[in-house]
Nucleic acid binder design. Structure first.
Lengths: 153, 153
DNA sequence: TATATCCATATGCAAACGCATATAATTACC
DNA sequence: GGTAATTATATGCGTTTGCATATGGATATA
């Protein structure tokens, strides 16, 4: 594994620019205001929605997908719960843990917002990349994630 | 420009995951604490450092690279200025605008932190991608940015 | 089983953020 | 050239964030 430092840095800088540019565009969508949901809140709702085990996840699991500190995520879930979008339930196997799952209202909101947001995402990517390039980008991003997981040992 | 909505969404989701994973790793670096600089602050210092015109940029220009609201960036610059890392000067051509440039101390700090951070970035990318893949990722990310610029019209 | 250590989540608090809006300077239009 | 619309940045204010730490359950060790 040779170290191509400058190439790596240039690639990462480009990724950051792309991330910033697209996030800015997506943040400008009307959906968020229409449904009174922030992108971060939606991110959590989305993560819960695609969660395999009956839409229930432990906070620690959600943490991996969302770029937030543990306390910030804990309070974000507070807010979602107080709005009736998610429910906290005790984990039967671990008394310390908390399971979070979407309520019907939360799942419904996620679907509504998700449809609109997915359109924007698809449009933005289609504008810039071919189908093959999208697949290539997906693969490269997945390799980056995989590389990270290896280093966490 | 056909719309490959699902492919685009999968690619974007992978990019978000990679971004989150790497940002988390980079945030854990010791540099930030050692030099009492947050990643966002460094981001601004870096943007100023690579700025062509004598390391001076208008706030609006900085805004494009940093994912922050205009008021947040304005105050971030306040803090950097109060620590003597950047200087605000009036723009000679536009009385509304403000030019921001690195002080010597700011440039020095940027270099120190930059070296350490660049090592981490390079290492993380090298761990996951080959040189060719880095180049490919850079190109795809640049196309994403270019696609965005086109849509801003 | 008592005790120390480790883990998952929550809470106190100061710092930082976003939204709305103010301020001041530029450009557009008549 | 004067008034309106626009642009660049700053400020007020309520909300959200991160850091440090508390709390309470699990695991290990003796």
């Amino acid at each position: 594994m040779p170290n191509y430092l400058t190439e790596g840095n240039r690639a990462w800088e480009a990724v950051l620019s792309a991330h910033a540019a697209l996030m800015r565009e997506f943040a400008a969508e009307a959906v968020w205001r229409e449904h009174d949901v922030s992108m971060r809140e939606y991110d959590v709702l989305y993560t819960l929605a695609k969660c395999p085990g009956g839409d229930a996840a432990r906070i620690g699991e959600l943490q991996e997908g969302v770029l937030l500190s543990q306390p910030a995520l804990s309070r974000l879930i507070d807010r979602l719960a107080s709005r009736g979008l998610v429910e906290r339930t005790a984990d039967p196997d671990d008394g310390r843990a908390v399971r979070v799952r979407l309520t019907d209202a939360g799942a419904e909101l996620q679907r509504r917002v998700g449809r609109a947001h997915a359109r924007s995402v698809g449009a933005a990517l289609s504008r810039a990349l071919s189908r093959e390039e999208m697949a290539s980008l997906e693969r490269l991003a997945q390799k980056l994630v995989a590389g990270q997981q290896g280093s966490a040992l």
